[in-house]
């Protein structure tokens, strides 16, 4: 009874549908931009906060602690800068692909990872939208399988409309292939 839903008729190993030939689509460019802005703003906020604490006169810091703050600011600045730079490049490498029977998500700059989630093994779907996501009209799609919380499949930075359509696609698929 499942045969009717599954349209890949080829059966030999050479002609199996292959993950290598997936047609990946990039996630929203807005995601990258908003992420960049958040990272920069957060780093600057932390550094400024430390600077204000260091310079204020209400509870004057001892000289040693003030020196330590210089180092802290430098380290934070460098870490934040590195993180921002890394995210800026890594976000460009986030892609997803949708096939009739499964979802895939590719990410990673140096360590490239492709996660594939067959629709038939999906337990439930969630759309998550934080305040920033809501502001810029994005959504994060989370898909849960019986593999446990450690292996939640998620695609960040989808335009709301496509996230909703993917979600609907999964739900419809589940309806068609209802099984145990």
């Amino acid at each position: 009874m499942q045969g009717t839903a599954f349209t890949n008729t080829s059966l030999t190993a050479e002609s199996l549908p292959s993950l290598v030939e997936l047609e990946f689509q990039p996630i929203s460019a807005i995601y990258r931009q908003s992420n960049l802005i958040i990272n920069v703003a957060f780093t600057l906020f932390l550094v400024t906060l430390l600077f204000v604490i260091q310079q204020q006169n209400i509870w004057p810091l001892s000289n040693d602690v003030a020196d330590l703050f210089n180092w802290l600011m430098l380290v934070l600045f460098m870490l934040g800068g590195f993180n921002t730079l890394y995210a800026a490049f890594a976000d460009k490498q986030k892609f997803y692909a949708l096939r009739q029977q499964d979802l895939s998500y590719r990410s990673g700059l140096l360590f490239r990872k492709t996660v594939s989630q067959p629709m038939l093994r999906i337990q439930h779907v969630e759309l998550k939208r934080g305040p920033i996501d809501r502001k810029v009209g994005l959504a994060k799609l989370q898909v849960f399988s019986a593999g446990g919380a450690m292996h939640t499949f998620e695609i960040p930075g989808l335009p709301l409309a496509s996230a909703e359509s993917i979600r609907q696609f999964i739900l419809d698929h589940k309806d068609v292939n209802r099984h145990g």
Binding site: M1, Q2, G3, A5, F6, N8, A13, L16, P17, S18, L19, V20, Q101, D102, S116, P118, M119, L120, R121, A146, N177, H179, G180
Partner: peptide
């Protein structure tokens, strides 16, 4: 590796068998 994963996905998706 990719052939193995393709085979797994194919069997999961085409057999329609429940995992439990």
């Amino acid at each position: 590796g990719s052939a193995m994963l393709d085979e797994i996905l194919y069997q999961v998706e085409s057999s329609g068998k429940s995992w439990m």
